[in-house]
Design a protein around this nucleic acid. Structure first.
Lengths: 253, 253
DNA sequence: TGTCCGACCGTGGTCAGACCAATCAAGCAG
DNA sequence: CTGCTTGATTGGTCTGACCACGGTCGGACA
């Protein structure tokens, strides 16, 4: 624990107020004189040393918190954190919500992430990952007739796949999109469940996805997953126009 | 300009202080009732309406600023911004400095985005897209011996592919990734260019990618791109251990 | 002698009110 | 009608204070 923040040149930061504090801490973090685990000076001391008020210091610390560089522990202090991609969750969630009002657009990104994830999952999933995936798979069939629980089970299964890819970044991106997609896909399943082919779609497809991952076959996993998405997309399109689905035809090809 | 922020239920956010304000604004942004261009209420009004003090409001606004969702204009007001990946610069700069293993993780996400993008590009690229892609392709060969310009041309080509996918979300995500990867891959090209096989790799591969897109063949485009990444990865690995590259062997298979 | 508990202090979290400076727009003078 | 002045608005900052709770340390008790 080394809180020795050298206050050699306080005036180094030309900016006033917030900018000064932020630049000061940023420089320390970049230079490495502040390493993960270190505790910063108390807010009051920082304010005094930098010649600014405490609210300004708090703004700067809050900013660093948003960047995931620092963690403010209530009544304990502010400690330097090891950077974590998870911090970007807020950004992507809100950014995607705004820039892409087109759900289909976000869906493409989801497909991108998940297809890559399932490839990686097939390569590097641990036994524990596979067990969790299996558990998620087992929950799909019992909930097949319950729209709410069924959607949850479905989502959980897909999320397990991404988790099995063992890539923090992919998980973050996936979660960010899930928030958006859940909002829009929530009600659709109710419409879809009336189709008989849905049972096949939901149960068999997920089983095949699971098998592909277990078989350690990235190519097949990717292919099956894309097919899965394509059929789901077709279901939704048919549902939108009130037609009876013909997904079984497509499956036959 | 619509600043009518409905203050129907102020107590909706259970959190206290900062959390309350942040959650309040976050919800508005997610729901879309706050759109880019809108001006928020003045800090004083916001504080009064939410029942918190002004410093707390400023903390929340500063947090949103860090996320690039909002822009505080001195003595003018706080306006909602169109999210911009540039904000991630701060994060990645510091994050990469501390954990190098993150680069590989982000690379996986990049592959995910770009492979999906090239599929879409093959399907829906416009003639203008293809022309721009062609222009980018033509700049690769002349810059083959210039590390800096060559890297730029390479990046530009890949970026054009993503742009041709006509998916805002994919572009946003890709740009975010590019920020990181450019930083880490910058110096590598210098090492790599000494390998004779690099000319083939850089020129032929990109030409094949272009052809696949023009041919409107998503499957082939995806396959070629994955191969492209795999070979590049192998180059880097070989370079790392100082071996002579054997990518030509791999190409022959 | 050793252990446990409680009071104190430091810390972040928050509040209230105030002053400054620059912007923007309305009102005034030309 | 134009150009300048002026005042209200708004963000930027400061001061000083209070609260609640985790950590620490010393004293009481077994």
């Amino acid at each position: 624990m080394n809180d020795t923040i050298e206050i050699t040149r306080v005036e180094e930061a030309g900016g006033r107020g917030f900018e000064k504090v932020f630049a000061f801490l940023r420089a320390r973090l970049l230079a490495g004189s502040l390493k993960p685990g270190d505790r910063l000076l108390p807010e009051r001391d920082l304010a005094a040393h930098l010649g600014v008020s405490r609210p300004v210091v708090r703004e700067a610390l809050r900013a660093l918190t948003m960047l995931g560089l620092v963690e403010i522990r209530d009544r304990v202090g502010t400690v330097v954190r090891r950077p974590d991609v998870g911090v970007l969750n807020d950004f992507f969630t809100l950014a995607i919500a705004q820039s892409a009002d087109l759900v289909d657009d976000v869906m493409q990104a989801r497909i991108a992430i998940e297809c890559q994830a399932i490839r990686l999952a097939a390569e590097r999933a641990t036994v524990a990952d596979l067990e969790r995936l299996r558990a998620a798979l087992d929950r799909i069939e019992p909930t097949i007739d319950d729209p709410a629980a069924g959607a949850r089970a479905d989502y959980e299964f897909h999320r397990r796949i991404v988790a099995a890819a063992r890539s923090e970044t992919l998980v973050v991106l996936y979660d960010a999109m899930a928030e958006v997609l859940l909002r829009s896909h929530a009600g659709r399943r109710r419409t879809l469940e009336s189709f008989g082919a849905m049972r096949t779609y939901l149960i068999d497809d997920h089983r095949r996805l699971f098998d592909a991952v277990v078989s350690r076959d990235p190519e097949r996993a990717d292919r099956v997953l894309r097919d899965h998405f394509a059929i789901g997309d077709e279901f939704r399109r048919k549902a939108a126009v009130g037609e009876a689905p013909t997904a079984t035809d497509r499956r036959a090809t």
